[in-house]
Each structure stands twice: as structure tokens, then as C-alpha cells.
């Protein structure tokens, strides 16, 4: 046996040491952290074919979307845990400052009865929707091919809990002032049977069980989120401003800051996927498959936003423009 050379210390992790520049904090703490992708035949240090191993083999390893080096994906915002809390603590300070200020001014008392009724119908049931986005993002986190993708999904999961939290908070506030309107009581029924929500619910329920990890990403980040962000956040926010509900308008804008961050990493991941030209057609297939449901969801919801007559049209156009800008 010949003696192998003696390895010398490197300036960084071995897998980053080939790069010309010094790795960033983001790269040091975020890259190459999934080991269950190492052996495609056996994700875990267990039987290669027990039920959960089969799940990962089928829905992750055998996905039609292929790339030889998923670990090369980078979050364009290079968010790490530390900066995530810095950013969001600042954002929450802003939001809770708004809540405090508007509450002091007795904002809710000044809302018109018709707008209050609309809030109960079109705003507060959002918590079910936002929670489904939270659950769905967590699926992408656990199934993604690279830790740099999972991390984006982790922060996105938390962001949706944030949206859910804002909505729950406002629901409680509205219930205090408008006790008879059923805030905190009627949301589930609205979510389950109101025609404004039915198509949205169909979309998210079906999206939640699209198990292939890449399809799961496509349907959530390229279809569901841009659609509902256009309808139940942006358009509702516009409608709010036109009804004297400045607070909801500002809250919506605060959430859309998160949404635009989500779009940035989605764009980067699609770009990564399209480095393999064979992937383009499959991505288009999925978009064609899911867009009819998304359009129906947007149309059903937006028809009740009478002050924003072009809400549906603009929301759909925004989603389609997003796809076109991705080359899909």
C-alpha cells in the first residue's frame, strides 16, 4: 500500500475550497447540508425500501426535474437565520407599531358596516389559506434537493405563520369592536362553503397533495402564491384603502414585502432548473395543468371586490407575466 498524501488544513470547508473568493457567512452555514441525497438508492441509514424511504425516492430522487448539482443553488438574498430575525423583528416592530397606533385612534369603530361585513367574508378567513401556505412550504423544506433550497422554504414557512398571526390578531381586534359580525367564529364556514373561497380552497387542497417535490414547488411558488397574493392580499388591500381601511392596506403591503422575497428565490430556482433545457417542457406542463384552477380561484374571489373592478384581470396578468419573465 502506498502512503497517501497527508491532507493539509484548508481555509474553508473542503467543498467550498475550490472557489476563488472567500466564502460568505451564508455559504459557510447553508451549503451541502442534506446527506439523504448522497445515496440515491437509499436515502436513510435504514432499509432502502421502507415506506418513508420509498416516499423520498419516488417524490424527490425520481422527480422529472433533474439537475446534476442542486447544491449550487443560492438564495439571491443570502438570508441566514441571524439576518432573518433581524429583518423580521424590524418588520414586526413596524407592523405592531401600526396596530398600536390604529387601535389608539379607534380605527375599527370608524369602519362602515358593509366593509366590516366584507372583512368577515373576504379577509379573516385568510388564516386558513395562510396556514395552508405554511404547511405547503414546510413540505418543500423537507423534500428539497439542496439545503440552500430548504432554507428558503424554512423562512417562507415562518413568513406564512407571520401572515397567519397578523390575521388572527386582526380577527380578535375586530371581534372586540364588531361583536355581532361573527369574527373569530364564522371563518371556518366561510372557508368551507362561501363561493368566494371555494375555488381557492380547491386549488390549495389539491396543491398540498402534489407530492413530487419540484411540482410541489411549482404549484406553490409559481401558481398558488402569486395568485392569492394578487387577489387576497394586494387587491383586498386596494379595496381596503378605498373603504377607509388604511390599516389593512398597510398590513397587506407589509406582507407583500415577504412575498417579493419569495418570488426572488423562486425565480432563482427556476433559473437553476432551466440550466437543464430538458426541464423547461415539464415546468410548462405543470403550469398549464394548474393555471385553470388558479384562474378560477382568482376570478371567484375577486368578483366580490367591487371597488377594484379589474382585480381579477390584473391578478391573472401578473401571474402570467411572472411566468413569461421566467421563460415559461
Amino acid at each position: 500500500m502506498t502512503m497517501p498524501e497527508i491532507l493539509k488544513p484548508l481555509k474553508t470547508w473542503e467543498h467550498l475550497s475550490g472557489a476563488r473568493r472567500k466564502p460568505s457567512e451564508y455559504e459557510i452555514v447553508s451549503t451541502n447540508l442534506h446527506y439523504s441525497t448522497d445515496d440515491q438508492n437509499s436515502p436513510f441509514e435504514l432499509d432502502p425500501n421502507f415506506d418513508i424511504a420509498l416516499w423520498f425516492k419516488k417524490y424527490r430522487n425520481e422527480s422529472p426535474i433533474k439537475h446534476p448539482d442542486w447544491n449550487s443553488f443560492r438564495d439571491p438574498d443570502e438570508i441566514v437565520y441571524r439576518t432573518y430575525n433581524l429583518i423580521q423583528d424590524g418588520q414586526e416592530a413596524y407592523v405592531f407599531g401600526l396596530l398600536d397606533q390604529f387601535s389608539d385612534r379607534e380605527h375599527d369603530k370608524a369602519l362602515s358596516p358593509s366593509w366590516v361585513a366584507l372583512l368577515g367574508r373576504l379577509y379573516t378567513p385568510n388564516r386558513y389559506l395562510f396556514h395552508s401556505l405554511q404547511m405547503h412550504s414546510a413540505y418543500i423544506c423537507q423534500m428539497a434537493q439542496a439545503s440552500t433550497i430548504s432554507n428558503c422554504a424554512t423562512y417562507q414557512t415562518a413568513d406564512h405563520l407571520r401572515w397567519l398571526t397578523h390575521t388572527a390578531y386582526r380577527t380578535a381586534e375586530l371581534a372586540k369592536v364588531h361583536g355581532a359580525a361573527g369574527f373569530g367564529l364564522n371563518e371556518k364556514n366561510r372557508w368551507l362553503s362561501d363561493p368566494a373561497w371555494l375555488d381557492i380552497r380547491e386549488l390549495v387542497e389539491k396543491a398540498l397533495v402534489a407530492w413530487d417535490w419540484a411540482e410541489s414547488f411549482v404549484v406553490l411558488n409559481l401558481i398558488v402564491k402569486p395568485s392569492i397574493e394578487g387577489a387576497t392580499i394586494r387587491s383586498l388591500g386596494e379595496s381596503a384603502r378605498r373603504n377607509g381601511d388604511t390599516l389593512l392596506g398597510l398590513l397587506s403591503d407589509a406582507q407583500l414585502v415577504d412575498a417579493s422575497r419569495h418570488q426572488k428565490w423562486s425565480r432563482a430556482l427556476v433559473k437553476k432548473m432551466l440550466e437543464q433545457d430538458e426541464n423547461r417542457e415539464q415546468l410548462r406542463v405543470w403550469i398549464r395543468k394548474w393555471m385553470p384552477l388558479a384562474k378560477a380561484a382568482i376570478n371567484s374571489y375577486c368578483q366580490y371586490l367591487v371597488e377594484v373592478p379589474d382585480a381579477a384581470e390584473r391578478s391573472i396578468a401578473t401571474v402570467e407575466e411572472f411566468h413569461a419573465s421566467l421563460g415559461l
Partner: peptide, 24 residues
Amino acid sequence: MTILDRSEWYDIARETNWTPTFVT
């Protein structure tokens, strides 16, 4: 300062189960 106590809205934030109808 009029910020609600967490206990006033915490339960609402965890009433998010529903029975699906478009999938089982």
C-alpha cells in the same frame, strides 16, 4: 399602548384545521 395580549388571539391562530372536500 393598545396591543392585545397574546392570549386574546392565540387560539384563533391555531384554529386552522378543516375537513378537506376536494381531496380526502
